[in-house]
Amino acid sequence: MFRQFFSISVFSVLLRQMTPVLLSALGCMFCYRAGTFNMGMEGYMLFSAFASISVNALTQSWVLGLLAGMAISILFALLHAFFVHKYKAHTIIVGFAINTLASALTIFLLQALYGSSGSYIPDTVDPIPTLTLPFLKSVPVLDGLLNGHSVVFWLAILLTIAAHITFKKTPYGMHIIAVGENCQAARSVGINDAAILYSTFVICGALSGIAGAFFSTGATKIFVRDMIAGLGFISIAVMNLGNGKPIGILFASLLYGASKTLSLQVQTLPNMTVPSQFIEMIPYVLTVIMLIVYALVEMRRKKAAS
């Protein structure tokens, strides 16, 4: 049983579980640092999952599928930003609207386009490839650890590093933080805060788009109604736990990935009498615990500082 929990294959499951959360949380972070709370990732990812598998099945190209997913996702993110900025709508309500729309629209299209009420499993999907370095194949431990993971995972790692550098060292990153912390100050030196807002939403849309495509054409080759199952919201908690910084988010999503992997592994144990739904509950419970821990830490920090 020990081996079941700690084998190399479990490790790759962990990375696979961590990838979409990491991407989504990074996206959420950009909007958050710029001063706007974005909870529309659930909807962006769902739209992207649907779009990318559809385009993928049609063209048999994972690249086109991925790009289609990102495009749709960015479109809705821009719509979100537009309503918030131009018409002063509340970001939570618009996010809620997009999430609801995504669910309703994808279910509707599932029926209208593919005649299915539950899932869409095309034969002609070209899955997002995994990365295998040939020279590593002969190295015993590294082969298992580093080979065979999805391209998206490595992309996510690169993006995490890129995000880190952006906020620490680039003018763009400085501008985002300035708009988030003191928008008036940013405006007074000529920073276009609307452009910053829109750009962070575009980034969030792009990252969520990648995550969504990963859901339907990377980890699996299927679209199921409401398949994101709350991951968009979980990524908000992950972002909080990671303190709104890229490296912190990396660790927080690792933590989430571990909990999800654990629950999956427990389900496959022999003699499992606990209903599977209880096990599926674990990531959500863990998210609530994460939020409580984060709140306690924040309280202690504020007390210590005074």
Binding site: M174, I177, A178, E181, N182, A185, V189, I191
Partner: peptide, 17 residues
């Protein structure tokens, strides 16, 4: 019009880095 968490250098250069 200053960002509290930034250093003086970062604030003065803001917008014209």
């Amino acid at each position: 019009m200053l960002v509290p968490s930034f250093t003086v250098v970062e604030n003065v250069a803001l917008g014209n880095e």
